[in-house]
Design a protein around this nucleic acid. Structure first.
Lengths: 118, 118
DNA sequence: GTTCACATGCAGATGATTCTGCACATTTAG
DNA sequence: CTAAATGTGCAGAATCATCTGCATGTGAAC
């Protein structure tokens, strides 16, 4: 559902973490130097797409994420799984387990943590 | 490293699976109706970017993937982990374990499978 | 040879993404 | 009041992604 370009995602990450902000604040947190006007161009597009909401407060506009971090994560993870793991998460899990070099004990600990999270 | 658009990824998936092909063959396997010329437009771009190689064979051009499926997978997975899991795969693992509703036994079985894969 | 199917070459339209420049409004410092 | 700093509005340039149309070339069937 939610497909973002690299630049859009940089904006979303900041707003997911910091809540409601105005462009100049986002600009300071941006992972690379970006001009204020260039950043506002991203913001306008994201508002048009419905991913951000904005409201006037004082003399500035404040922006906040409407599209949730968690649903974007699920959507992007789903696309990855579809493309590379035949649509099932099992292959992805297997890949991660192989890569992470976990002992069975660590794995079970992780499993317990996952159960708690639910 | 390797960043693909949705359309480019559709092409790459087919070539990863089928090896070397000419446009008309790719066209038949394409997940949606696409005109031959539109498809060739993708192919040209992917060759320019270095993701595909092409060679003349008979009267047609044949295309094959230069960028490997496995490295693209790693790259996209890495980006996902960076964006949503603070750069460590652990949170992703945890998320997947919670979602997959595995029993500890199934988990250990998966773990064994992962060890073997290495 | 003629004709048809298949394949590429090329030019470019369209819209999205990314970014720039400049004008103007408002707050704050002197 | 004046000037600098900070904020937005707006117009649009540059590039890329996606797709279309038409011309041309070549092999195969007749």
């Amino acid at each position: 559902m939610a497909r973002f370009t690299a630049g859009e995602l940089e904006v979303m990450r900041i707003l997911w973490e910091h809540g409601e902000m105005k462009p100049a604040e986002i600009q300071k947190l941006f992972p690379r130097p970006i001009k204020n006007a260039a950043l506002r161009s991203y913001l306008t597009i994201l508002v048009d797409k419905g991913h951000l909401a904005r409201r006037s407060k004082g003399r500035a506009f404040f922006y906040r994420a409407k599209t949730k971090r968690e649903s974007t994560f699920r959507s992007m993870l789903g696309e990855l799984v579809n493309t590379f793991c035949g649509g099932s998460s099992e292959a992805l899990l297997c890949h991660l387990l192989a890569k992470e070099k976990l002992s069975p004990e660590e794995l079970l600990e992780l499993h317990r943590a996952a159960q708690e999270k639910k």
